[in-house]
Design a protein around this nucleic acid. Structure first.
Lengths: 338, 338
DNA sequence: ATAATAGATGTAACCGATTACAGGCAAGGA
DNA sequence: TCCTTGCCTGTAATCGGTTACATCTATTAT
């Protein structure tokens, strides 16, 4: 029994007024007699009437919904960012929808279409596969903000940590603690952040005059499977690296696990450095030394920037780097001072 | 520079036909001269026209979008279910939006409002805080399916594992392997699945004539923090339990970690059984013995049921239990046969 | 040759709201 | 008494589509 919802017409009829008057009551227009307001309000309650979003949006061009585009939700990293977005959105009367693109262009386009047609007021990208030019164009037309992940050369606002600096610092930390042969597992050129992290790693090696060995760079990805594959490759190396630096905690977990099966223990026989500080990192064994990103704050700030752009599309494009922190736990051997 | 999108009128004007004809071309109506189709198609391409969702939806009452309502995405458990939903949705030309309710009624209501107003064609609930009566009413009016988590007494379709049987089997497994004092960490009465698991645990103890100790039930929740709290309580017990059975892997991870800090090693000094088989479980140390749910298939099946309901709202309500599996790894001590 | 039929297209109502504009009415000023 | 003013409310256009119905033309049957 699909009971049709009451429309503004039904309310108007019951209250004995025109639809315009009902609409005025709904939108708190001033010029309505208090008596009429009461009539209409009564009718609204009697019919359990709720304004239809579509009709309203079609006119108003405002939905008070925003979309967050993520490539996947398997990576724990995103959950705290999204919480930050959501909390801030909620404070401003906005709702958050999540679009999972799977890193596929077609899927991503469909969600963007929603923005173009005002089914949502804006999008926060946690990742995108679109070319920079397209992103710049979209950002010129619609409220769009990037968080965590940038697309090189795109003219859009960004909230992130400085991936280059963070990776540099992590690498320096490893070197300062006596590690020389440092493998690096990243997502290759898929993610701009990954590229930056790779560059930070390489430049820091150079800075410390450690010869660069291309064989130590393993562009396996950021997933559990990536860590498994990386472990296989590492176990096949003639000499084991002193340390493995991975561009994601997730990959670090499975790598550590696989190495352990081969009798190599992270934190003792080999050092492992992660990236992201996902919720599991502190409970893993050994507790994962990693780069902690202010995920919640990144989300919060991204939402704030998006709200600015929704209010005034001409808001200038900005890039904000938030502070990261090296989270020292047990998976990296520390050189004893003294 | 907000460039307005082309509308159907613009296309009609450029092609020199009426909007009706353009609409017919868009919707592949048969009665259009091939020549005219070509004209219109050319105009559509020239203007880079894409039909506006809102206008269309307002008439058609169909969006080809569905919503998945989750309490949180911090729990890894959901990601594979959602992947199953998404893959199936995609195969049928549907898009998936994710609504994160945070377990809050108000937030949940807003998303339901989207369904009521046809902003989405249906909802798959992975959790709900609504009372059963309300859910039944909603299910009577709109396409709604529950997955993984049920609400007792609600008349809606459900796809899940049999939580009672699964918990019973897990408990029996612990007992058969020599565990007598078995603590149980659950979400209390918050989740129906949690209640069923608790009952399975209790009934199995009785079946094996193990005296029930209410102090061994710890309704801390399913999160990392829940595991930490449970560990604290367990460490304060006069005699340590032989095993801890937790209603979520997530809580199991942090519990194991906290116990280790106190010198108690899961799999050796104490057994730990999880529930869900999240992606991390196999890489954790010790690898987590847990109940594996067919998450992907649950999602897939839920989406299929939802599609049935979207096509024909009168489709009878069903409950489908999918097979679970006890995933035996290293966190539970096994009694040696022989 | 005429009527019936099918095919192609246009007209206009409609979905559910918002809002510019106009009209009605009462109060106040000349 | 008549006109102006302001408050309240209704009419109708509009947003961007879809679609029932009407219209017109060309084809076929009789």
């Amino acid at each position: 029994m699909v009971r049709d919802l009451a429309t503004i017409k039904d309310v108007a009829k019951l209250a004995g007024v025109s639809v315009a008057t009902v609409s005025r009551v709904l939108n708190q227009s001033t010029n309505v007699k208090p008596e009429t307001v009461k009539q209409v309000t009564k009718a609204i309650e009697a019919l359990d009437y709720h304004p239809n979003f579509l009709g309203r949006t079609l006119r108003r061009l405002e939905t008070r919904k925003i979309l967050v585009m993520v490539p996947t939700i398997s990576n724990q990293f995103y959950s705290r960012v999204i919480r930050g977005i959501q909390a801030t959105a909620f404070d401003h009367g906005y709702h958050v929808m999540l679009g999972i693109s799977g890193g596929e262009s077609e899927s991503e386009q469909q969600y963007i279409e929603m923005l173009r047609h005002k089914l949502v007021d804006g999008i926060i990208f946690l990742h995108s596969v679109m070319p920079a030019a397209e992103i710049s164009a979209l950002g010129g037309d619609c409220p769009v903000v990037f968080a965590c992940e940038q697309v090189r050369g795109a003219r859009v606002s960004l909230v992130s940590i400085n991936d280059y600096n963070a990776a540099s610092e992590a690498t320096a930390f490893l070197i300062q603690n006596g590690h020389q042969r440092i493998a690096f597992v990243s997502a290759g050129d898929l993610y701009a952040s990954s590229q930056l992290r790779t560059k930070g790693y390489q430049d820091t090696l150079k800075k410390y005059q450690i010869p660069f060995d291309a064989g130590l760079i393993l562009p396996e990805g950021l997933t559990f499977n990536a860590g498994v594959r990386a472990a296989e490759k590492i176990l096949r190396m003639k000499t084991l690296p002193d340390a493995v630096f991975l561009a994601s905690d997730t990959a670090a977990f499975s790598l550590i696990s696989q190495l352990r099966k081969a009798g190599i223990h992270a934190g003792k026989d080999i050092s492992v450095m992660g990236f992201d500080n996902t919720p599991t990192a502190e409970y893993f064994f050994p507790a994962l030394t990693t780069i902690s990103q202010p995920q919640f704050d990144i989300g919060k700030r991204a939402m704030e920037l998006l709200l600015d752009r929704i209010q005034d599309p001409q808001t200038p494009v900005t890039t904000e780097y938030l502070p990261y922190r090296l989270e020292i736990r047990d998976s990296v051997r520390i050189k004893q001072k003294s």
